[in-house]
Design a protein around this nucleic acid. Structure first.
Length: 283
DNA sequence: CGGTACGCCTGAAGGC
DNA sequence: TGCCTTCAGGCGTACC
């Protein structure tokens, strides 16, 4: 369940290891983990086998929950971790803790060292996408995403929420409205903003301002805490996130509210377990 | 066309 | 102990 906070923390921990490295060898153990691009025209696509083979890695970019590995020469690999995906850097001589469900491996050469980067994903809800350029990615997959949640403003958020008849919980999970929130952080954000997850997404001005602030603040704190590990998430070095312990509501159904002590309610909204405080997040 | 339901997939956890 | 069922959920797709 890596969401924006986990991907951003991954980006920050992975970048120093791989930027400047050349992809000396690529092993694609499971070719079907390379997914079809939405744009079916051949122009923006490259062969799956060319996943940065021979390229020098220039930088890492992120939008919402998606990560992009960009090369100096232009080609780009977009990575989505889905539910259980991991992108791990293994320095020379080090061992990968688990080698099952490794779908892709990049052998990386630096001036002074070599290493490997692997994509593991037991559940295979994640995937890789190959593009010939950053522009091709931006006009294809990333064009379908709303503004990035880490910097989303009230001005961006309110009109988008006003266009739907769904609950606020369901709307915030929709990546085309705002990109980066999943089930964990939607619940955390709504608790912080004192908004009932069942209420219509068409919020009043004051509430949408508080919501935008809560989204940015919650994600910033989670990134600083190294993200949340529920089961599978680890950063580039294989370390688990420490923010899980700071969750106010997610995974705490039946337990007392940290603010008022009322037992937290666990219900289902839009097919997702939703935990909230009936007292604090009242109408 | 907006909204909802379901399937994909594995592993952990709980019941008997 | 071991087998079976249930649950977790991001997202694409089928369908109303």
């Amino acid at each position: 369940m890596p969401e924006l906070a986990e991907i951003e923390h991954l980006r920050q921990t992975l970048e120093p290891h791989i930027v400047g490295a050349r992809v000396a060898q690529l092993r694609l153990y499971r070719p079907d983990i390379v997914r079809q691009c939405t744009d079916r025209s051949p122009a923006g696509r490259i062969a799956p086998k060319a996943l940065l083979s021979g390229r020098r890695i220039a930088r890492l970019a992120r939008h919402g929950k998606q990560l992009a590995i960009l090369s100096d020469e232009g080609p780009v690999v977009c990575v989505h971790l889905g539910m259980s995906g991991q992108l791990i850097y293994i320095p020379r001589g080090a061992r990968l803790p688990r080698t099952d469900h490794v779908h892709c491996l990049w052998r990386l050469e630096q001036k002074s060292s070599t290493g490997r980067m692997v994509f593991r994903d037991p559940r295979r809800f994640g995937g890789l996408w190959a593009y010939e350029s950053e522009e091709a990615l931006l006009s294809d997959r990333w064009s379908q995403l709303g503004p990035d949640a880490l910097s989303v403003t009230t001005r961006q958020l309110r009109p988008r929420l006003a266009r739907t008849s769904r609950s606020i919980k369901a709307a915030l999970l929709d990546q085309s409205l705002v990109a980066g929130l999943g089930n964990i952080y939607v619940d955390e954000v709504l608790f912080r903003a004192r908004i009932d997850p069942r209420c219509p997404a068409d919020l009043a001005a004051v509430q949408s301002a508080e919501l935008a602030r809560s989204i940015r603040a919650t994600l910033k704190a989670a990134i600083a805490g190294g993200g949340s590990t529920i089961r599978d998430y680890v950063d580039a070095s294989g370390r688990q996130g420490a923010f899980t312990e700071q969750h106010a509501v997610y995974g705490r159904g039946g337990q007392p509210c940290v603010r008022c002590g009322t037992p937290l309610e666990a219900i289902r909204i839009a097919q997702r377990t939703t935990v909230f405080c009936r007292a604090c997040q009242g109408p």
